[in-house]
Computed example of a mutant assay.
Amino acid sequence: MSDKLKILIVEDEMLIGANISLQLNELGYEVTGLVPRGEDALKHIENQLPDIMLLDINLKGDLDGIETAIEMQKKHNIPIIYLTANTDDAHFNRAKETKPYGFISKPFKKLDLQRTIELTINQMDSKGKKSAEIESQNNNSFLLSDCIFVRHLNSMIKVDIKDILYIEAERNYCRIFSNSKEYLVVMSLKEMDDKLPSKHFLRTHRSYIINLSQIKEIAATHVVIGNKALPVTKSLKEELLKRIQTI
């Protein structure tokens, strides 16, 4: 299963759409689909929910881009970035009612696309995305209630919280160890501890936060997660045992 940010492109000029898809792939994002009509976009969403929609305002067909957004928002809360070659007040005011996360005017550069997507992730909390509690630190990571977005090369990679094994302090950074990879995040362990859901995570040592559901063994002075023994401070051992009983 891919951990990349998923983006749906809704664009009726297929050459433009294909170029956008190529740019998104180069930036490290996953394109879930390229569809030319609003009706097609609504069907696509029911089968594969994207994280973000890039939506052309001036779609041909029964629904233009703004009408597509209105229909989508009756069931879903997917962040919208509008693509438009028409920036007149009438279109802007109609589009504004759907509370988009951004506008990209055609023609645009790859950097415009990249920055708008990253700003969209950063705005999710203030725009009220359901189930999202997003914090940013130096534009390097974005923490949600069920996942964390971390920067990798030129893109943001999504790591599901349930897949995190443990987190280790590294000066003013945190190193996140997941089932398959590890990531370095510009955030202190204390900040990470404050933001992670306490139901699943516990700071057992000044240098470690563990995912309680990933524990394989509990010993007198440590726990085993994966193939690693992680220290448990004596004062936190009782709390650890209490929390294990409630999982």
Rank of each mutant, 00 (worst) to 15 (best):
G65R: 10
Y29F: 15
M14T: 09
Y166I: 03
L55H: 07
E170V: 11
V150R: 00
R203Y: 04
L236S: 07
V35R: 11
F103D: 09
L212Y: 13
P197G: 08
K109V: 05
S188L: 01
K43E: 15
L49T: 10
G28W: 08
I9F: 00
I20M: 03
I121L: 15
H44L: 11
L8V: 03
G28E: 07
T233D: 10
L34D: 02
C147A: 15
Y208W: 12
N25R: 12
K127F: 13
H222C: 15
K199F: 03
P36D: 05
N93T: 07
Y173N: 13
K129H: 10
K234I: 10
D51N: 11
L54W: 00
I57D: 04
L184G: 00
Y183R: 03
L49E: 10
M53N: 10
K237W: 10
K74Y: 08
I7Q: 01
K158Q: 14
Y208Q: 02
T84K: 12
L119G: 01
A41G: 11
K234V: 12
L236E: 14
R206A: 05
M72P: 05
N86D: 14
Q214M: 15
I134F: 12
K228E: 15
P100Y: 12
G33C: 06
K228R: 12
L54F: 03
S155A: 15
H205Q: 08
E46F: 02
M53C: 15
I66P: 02
I167K: 00
K96N: 13
L230D: 06
Y82V: 08
V10M: 08
L202E: 05
